[in-house]
Design a protein around this nucleic acid. Structure first.
Length: 553
RNA sequence: GGGCUUGUGGCUUAGCCAGGAUAGAGCGCCGGGCUUCUAACCCGGAUGUCGGGGGUUCGAAUCCCCCCAGGCCCGCCA
């Protein structure tokens, strides 16, 4: 309803004034929507904006009734207030299963996220990528797109060669620890060995050459090391409610000849330079740095495989979305520029800034990181304490299940609520906070709504809203589809997080001031209808955020 | 040094791209509310030179320029 009414008003303003730019602003406490068009017209016509606003408002009023929409000039502003038909229409939509979903679309989306190097467990920086990516994947699905989420597995780079070298000297003997954590220990130890004996670098170079040539023995070793680590990573992702539709192995693009084919095409580009190395001159695209694709020893670098990967994606999907850390900005730009030169599709890239620790930036190699597994364990423990304190009467397995859902909600929400372009410092105190502006807070509002609905008997959907708390809540419910659309358009999932929190806020105030079960007749039916619409909207919003909509907690 | 990015009450943060009506939240602080639908809640209060300076505009947190500070990048790593 919101999007329809917005569109209706702007179309009307266009036809009345002949102006194209008639975007509306939020009316705040004055109105639901407002127009500042009178200011613009005042300058052109050399007349008072107040008079113009008054005239326009009158014309708008005459231009047909649109569901009880109120139009009023207030000084130079034209204010619009939604009527009861709007509320009724919005609530009816909000009661339906899947509220907020858009009609199916044809476009296929390849959404790549996480793609952490399999040389250790995911840490709190990696999961910013995972959570942004998974949330976007859910939002795009809701918006009707056919989405395939992909993990691009680096199974061939130098870091993996270091792991393979480490395993060959240290062996594989995880001491009761999770495999990916063991791999990190091997990686850290191997790096230390390299520092003490630079001669090892030559051994690692040989490993890389052999794996790229397809040397059976080495290929198997690489694949085993990566698989072991990936199993651990997958376990962590599953706990976070994240799964990928496809794991794309980087080495596949070498084996199937794609990398060679890209290299051949690139050599024919006028911007290609072939000396010791093969590189592309991108100065015309404002990149001073050489974009190197092949080393002097003939092996390719990551960039070459990345080009092959994106060409493959571009030919099999309509839209490519990559979630990448801000450290990938330069190479992301170089990649896109090169794809354009080749006449291939370019990805849309969402860059997010880094998560650091209070003592400095994280580093797997230096063993300086907080693993996602440790984070999940700590938070689940705290959540279990909270659940037991409040709901001691519940069976332990029920409490455990609630605690896990609460913990994941806390983690996911805490990360997704911040705009991606903000660099953050990981803070245990904040991570363990289950109060307002947290995932559990929103889950709690949902559980309260469920509790009311469970205690109520059958009721007839009714749409007589009178109390300001009711109206404010209903108006916010109506915005949900527009939020989904906005997140898709701007790739900014934190807008959905903020929306869900505001909805929970409004519901909690309503809950405190407006009795539902103790009211009677039409009032009771209307309030139950509103509670149900809220419950359903909260559920859809939470699930789109990858958070369990708990019915009790 | 160059490029990208961020700077909003003590702390965290929304709003900035598409400029409008007293800058919106949370934490913390002060005070109030559970014989009443789950208090992981609600209500009230104090706290802001929107990093600094200039400019554009009827109007700037928002656009432009300069400066300062933090983060990231500038590898034959990924």
């Amino acid at each position: 309803m919101y999007r329809e009414v917005y569109h209706q008003i702007t179309e009307l303003l266009r036809s009345l004034t002949g102006h194209e730019d008639v975007e509306l602003i939020e009316g705040g406490e004055h109105a639901d929507l407002a127009s500042t068009l009178a200011f613009t017209l005042a300058r052109e016509q050399h007349r008072s904006p107040t008079v113009i606003a008054q005239e326009l408002a009158e014309k708008l009023q005459k231009s047909g009734d649109s569901g009880g929409l109120q139009v009023e000039a207030k000084g130079p502003y034209i204010n619009f207030n939604f009527g009861s038909a709007y509320l009724e229409g919005s609530l009816k939509a909000a009661l339906k299963k899947g509220y907020g979903a858009m009609p199916s679309r044809y476009e296929r989306v390849a959404l790549e996220h996480t793609s952490a190097n399999p040389n250790g467990p995911l840490h709190v920086g990696h999961i910013r990528n995972s959570i942004l990516g998974d949330t976007l994947s859910r939002v795009f699905k809701k918006a009707g797109y056919r989405v395939e989420s992909q993990y691009y597995v680096n199974d061939i780079g130098r870091q993996i060669a270091i792991v393979v070298w480490g395993l060959s000297t240290l062996g594989f003997r995880p001491d009761g620890e999770k495999e990916d954590h063991y791999i990190a220990r091997v990686y850290i130890a191997a790096n230390r060995s390299i520092e003490n004996d630079p001669g090892i670098v030559a051994e690692i170079d040989r490993l890389m050459q052999r794996v790229e040539r397809g040397d059976k023995e080495v290929v198997v070793k690489f694949r085993q090391a990566v698989s072991v680590c990936l199993d651990g990573i997958r376990e962590t992702l599953t706990a976070l409610h994240i799964s990928h539709n496809r794991y794309v192995w980087e080495s596949d693009f070498i084996r199937n000849g794609d990398v060679e084919r890209v290299i051949d095409r690139i050599r024919k580009l006028p911007q290609a330079r072939e000396e010791e190395t093969l590189w592309i001159d991108l100065t015309a695209e404002n990149f001073e740095k050489r974009y190197i694709l092949r080393r002097s020893d003939g092996t390719t670098v990551y960039a070459a495989r990345d080009l092959a990967f994106h060409i493959w994606k571009g030919r099999n999907f309509d839209i490519m979305i990559d979630i990448l850390g801000s450290d990938h900005k330069l190479i992301g730009g170089q990649l896109s520029a090169t794809l354009r030169m080749l006449g291939e599709k370019s990805p849309v890239i969402l860059h997010f800034e880094f998560v650091s620790l209070p003592e400095g930036s994280m580093s797997t190699r230096a063993g300086k990181f907080v693993s996602a597994d440790d984070l999940i364990t700590e938070i689940t423990e705290k959540a279990m304490e909270e659940v037991t304190k409040r709901r001691g009467e519940l069976a332990e397995n029920v409490r455990r299940s609630i605690a896990h859902s609460v913990a994941i909600a806390a983690i996911r929400y805490n990360i997704v609520k911040v705009s991606p372009e903000k660099s953050t410092v990981f803070d245990w105190r904040e991570a363990l906070d289950f109060e307002r502006q947290s995932g559990p807070y929103i889950q709690y509002a949902h559980a309260r709504a469920c509790s009311i609905l469970e205690k109520a008997d059958e009721f007839t959907p009714t749409y007589q809203l009178t109390d300001p708390h009711e109206v404010a809540l209903a108006k916010h419910i109506a915005l949900f589809p527009a939020i989904i659309e906005k997140v898709v358009g701007e790739l900014r999932p934190h807008l959905l997080a903020a929306y869900a929190r505001d909805l929970a806020d409004l519901f909690n105030s309503f809950y405190r001031y407006v009795p539902v079960l103790r009211s009677e007749g039409i009032t009771r039916d209307s309030r139950l209808t509103l509670v149900q619409a809220t419950q359903n909207t909260l559920k859809e919003a939470l699930e789109t955020l990858g958070i369990d909509a708990l019915t009790t907690m």
